[in-house]
Amino acid sequence: MSQLDFEKPILELEGKIAELRHVSGGSEVNIADEISRMQAKAARLLEQAYGKLTPAQKVQIARHQERPHFKDYIEKLIDDFTPLAGDRAFAEDYALPGGLGRFKGYPCVIIGHEKGHDTESRIKHNFGMARPEGYRKAQRLLSMASHFQLPVITLVDTAGAYPGRGAEERGQSEAIAKSIESCLRADVPIISIIVGEGGSGGAIAIAVADRVYMLEHSIYSVISPEGCASILWRSATHAEEAATALKLTAQDLKALDLIDGIIDEPVGGAHRHKDQTIANVGKTIEAALAELTPWDTNSLKQARRSKFLAYGRNFQA
């Protein structure tokens, strides 16, 4: 498991507690009191750390390998999941899986980035960086959703679209642009959740939705803090400052009115509390669907447009 710098004291304490537990098994000394004292302290430290996370720390948490991934959400939230592969033209893209399934019993289409959970699967999923084929499959699934009147759920977790030679040759830009266009044209409700990293064009390609939510410690940005720092500060070492300046946290973006809501993560983050986090996401999707399902197609599309057109117009000029 990868470690976060600011969690080190907590992880050390947790290690000691585990050690003491192990020891206490064979010993006559009652150290239960000591253990519970240390546990209380660990909980306090965790609460302190998570109560005042900096944007740069949030970037680390958002990228934490143990955070729930697309696969975990599918397992917990979707029944009858039926993966659908391929763009019907060139290839299947494992970085952006999707398919049909039932959410709370109702059929829907689900699309999302998958980063993978170990070396082998990370390579298979290309670390969640999709190629044009992924975005073309997304277009296909979005139009299928319209055709069969199925709501769409998208889960965003990518560092960005893949910067590769083949991706360029096969029209990465066009694939992303058309994916955005497909989202805008969909005749059904779309709900997007930024569950980890919302990296630039590769993220927004599937996040032009009626409702866009972010998990409490996720990030959503036009460029990675490292990329921004290396361009504007001429050195990636300024990534922390860039993370702050970019206003990429869920809290910043809610304050700017660029997302619809924030989904709570238990203290200690989604990487410690997978099930609870996934359940919170499920509740949010359920509420959003209940609200959006009665809408007629035209008002839904019109409202989606108006919502995006309104971005930035209400700021203090």
Partner: peptide
């Protein structure tokens, strides 16, 4: 590309400009 000094507000110009084209 996008003007990163405007953060997410510049990223949402991608869908906004496509709405214009629509």
């Amino acid at each position: 590309g996008a003007r990163m000094q405007e953060g997410m507000l510049s990223l949402v110009q991608m869908p906004r400009s496509i709405i214009a084209v629509e």
